[in-house]
């Protein structure tokens, strides 16, 4: 069967198929696999810094028949490293509250990194009280995309994890997010348990998290939060007067969205350019 190109947009995944696929979340990397990777990485020699010439290598260089492969490798590292290193250090991360890490959408070479930092935050609205967090206002709490990456969203890694997810899902700027908003929701039913068991459950959870009624969910990623079953939910964080999204809001919350989960939820604002 050929893989001929097909024009137009890829239709949303069939909701039941999405549910079946999401049921097979792989979970976190097993400890033994991680230990094996760490072991192999620790066996590797550090890369040679750009501009630093190892004296032994330099001596060996004078004996080209024996060390030609080494010479080629070292030269490659030095030359490319000299180009790459400065380009990666040009961005200044935005300040982040609560000691969380910083992150820029895409990469440091992106032109708008000054405004592009992900900033840990909590929503202004109070999640408690009879009016605040009225979930009934969130009419369409159906994510555009329901996935199950198995990521363990946690603490200081959250900004990078969210940035990674948004980057690979293409939601890196206003145009892309606007396009995602205009697409049909991924499903009219939802797979899973707890907050991802139904649009109503998700809307209720978003309300209790203090998100405003227009916090349209874009992505729901099932995984874990600090090692416990949970989800990352990415919503529209802010819009301008024309309705163009200006920021995304991500929240990592336990799967039950219980009071305890809501209290422990981790929030992140991601400005859009």
């Amino acid at each position: 069967m050929s893989d001929s190109d097909i024009g137009g947009d890829l239709p949303p995944l069939d909701p039941e198929l999405a549910a079946w696929l999401a049921a097979d979340a792989p979970g976190p990397m097993p400890d033994d696999v991680w230990a094996g990777i760490q072991s192999r990485l620790s066996d590797e020699a550090p890369l040679v810094p750009a501009g630093v010439v190892d004296l032994d290598s330099e001596r060996e260089r004078r004996r080209p028949r024996r060390v030609l492969p080494w010479l080629v490798g070292a030269a490659g590292v030095m030359v490319v490293g000299a180009v790459v290193v400065p380009s990666l250090q040009t961005s200044s991360p935005a300040p982040v509250a609560d000691g969380a890490s910083t992150a820029q959408p895409a990469v440091a070479a992106a032109p708008a990194t000054e405004a592009g930092g992900a900033v840990a935050s909590a929503p202004a609205a109070s999640p408690s009280g009879s009016d605040a967090g009225d979930a009934s206002g969130i009419v369409t709490a159906i994510p555009r995309s329901i996935i199950a990456t198995g990521t363990d969203y946690s603490g200081e890694s959250l900004p990078e994890q969210v940035t990674s997810l948004l980057s690979t899902s293409g939601m890196v700027d206003q145009a892309a997010v606007t396009a995602a908003l205009t697409a049909s929701p991924a499903a009219t039913t939802m797979p899973g348990v707890g907050l991802s068991s139904s649009p109503e459950a998700l809307a209720d959870c978003l309300g209790r998290l203090g998100l405003p009624p227009d916090a349209m969910p874009l992505v729901l990623d099932r995984g874990t939060v600090n090692g416990r079953d949970g989800s990352l939910i990415v919503t529209i964080g802010a819009q301008d007067s024309a309705g163009i999204p200006t920021a995304l809001h991500a929240v990592a919350v336990g799967q039950d969205c219980s009071e305890e989960d809501v209290a422990a939820a981790q929030h992140l604002d991601i400005p859009l350019r």
């Binding site: 550090p46 890369l47 810094p49 490293g81 250090q89 300040p95 890490s101 910083t102 820029q104 440091a108």
Partner: peptide
């Protein structure tokens, strides 16, 4: 030697990769 981050000890992926290329083990 990466970008100064003030009080935050955390670096971005790009900064870490740059540090790796600079010899950070």
């Amino acid at each position: 030697g990466g970008t100064p981050l003030g009080d935050s000890p955390t670096r971005t992926d790009a900064e870490l990769l740059a540090a790796h290329c600079a010899g950070d083990p």
